[in-house]
Design a protein around this nucleic acid. Structure first.
Length: 308
RNA sequence: CGCGGGGUAGAGCAGUUGGUAGCUCGUCGGGCUCAUAACCCGGAGGUCGUUGGUUCAAGUCCAUCCCCCGCAA
């Protein structure tokens, strides 16, 4: 089949690779190169790099809804469009180009977690299960008819990044089944149950700010849900202290102030939350690299200091 | 040339008003112990990121360059 693949980050790579390996005729549509890093180096999105490596034509548009985007799409004349973490909203005109329409690979069990960062939010909210949904893209935000679903459990200590990798791989498998069903004519469309729908916002830097007046569990979930991006942090002596990994404990609490730190290199580092002590396993101070808390404490004591 | 933090023993950090370097861990040796990642004693290990400058004397002041990190994008 002739497929236009619309995707941008690494999440889309397994799906793109699957389509390529399956022998479909592909064209990749992705976002423009973006400045990345301290020196704002212009960096191509992962899907573009993949396409270049495999001699797949690549098209980049700020907005594929604009006339140039539509024209390029029409020129390629695909039978089907596939989107995976594309990051742009498609117009009805875009969607009308391929005769089979557009299939989207989404990292949640729709209609739950519609929106931009479903994987991270599922972890932040402490969900124990999530999955992949393939759906027919329509003009709404992840509102189209559901095609196939695959479920996976979320480990209590799993980070969003780890789950991201698993779901990216799973997404390719679900997509493969979906396309095979489409080709076999056995695909069943099921409208989403609007009463069960939830939306999650795009993840921003400030979503990583920790609030120690919350329970140890919610803070733990926040830390793993924002790992590796945007990363969890708190303020220590007016400097940012990033917290990369934490662990729930049964350490007894007394009347310590919220956010107080205790512990040393041997015992480990603990922070006082609303209902208990959360162990900080890995942190990163201003100017420093990420370190195990016990290693960091070899050089500096944080005993009695308070995180805000 | 966007803003800021930092480059000191294998690791993490100190080093006050400039006078040739300390701490914790690790490591090596010895001791204690039924035993130990615990404890005690002792040892090794650093041209203090680069280059140049000021000075009787610089890790410590000035300049330059390289590298790492955070923010912003």
């Amino acid at each position: 089949m002739k497929i236009a693949f619309l995707g941008t980050p690494t999440f889309a790579i397994p799906s793109l690779d699957m389509l390529y390996q399956s022998g479909h005729t592909l064209a990749v549509f992705t976002q423009p190169d973006r400045p990345v890093g301290r020196h704002a180096t212009l960096t191509p999105p992962p899907t573009k790099l993949y396409a270049l490596e495999h001699d797949v034509p690549v098209y980049q548009f700020d907005k594929i809804r604009m006339p140039e985007g539509v024209a390029a799409l029409k020129a390629f004349a695909p039978d089907l469009m596939v989107t995976a973490a594309f990051g742009q909203i498609l117009s009805a005109e875009n969607l009308s180009v391929p005769k089979f329409g557009c299939i989207n690979v989404h990292g949640s069990l729709l209609p739950k977690y519609r929106g931009a960062a479903p994987i991270q939010w599922a972890v932040i909210n402490g969900e124990t299960e999530t999955g992949i949904t393939t759906m027919m893209t329509d003009v709404g935000l992840d509102t189209g008819d559901i095609l196939l679903t695959d479920r996976v459990g979320i480990d209590p200590d799993e980070t969003a990044g780890e789950l991201f990798d698993r779901l990216a791989t799973l997404g390719a498998k679900t997509l493969k089944r979906t396309i095979e069903a489409l080709e076999a004519g056995s695909l069943i469309r099921m409208p989403q149950d609007e009463s069960q729908a939830t939306k999650c916002p795009m993840l921003k830097k400030e979503h990583g700010k920790l609030d120690f007046s919350q329970s140890a569990l919610s803070i733990h979930n926040r830390v793993r849900g924002t790992n590796p991006w945007p990363g969890a942090y708190a303020m220590l002596d007016d400097c940012v202290l990033k917290i990369h990994r934490t662990k729930l404990t049964d350490r007894q609490i007394d009347s310590e102030p919220i956010g107080m730190l205790t512990g040393n290199a041997k015992t480990g580092l603990f922070v006082r939350c609303a209902d208990g002590w959360l162990e900080i396993l890995e942190l990163q101070a201003t100017g420093g690299k990420r370190l195990n808390a016990s290693v960091y404490l070899l050089g500096k004591s944080l005993e009695g200091k308070v995180l805000i």
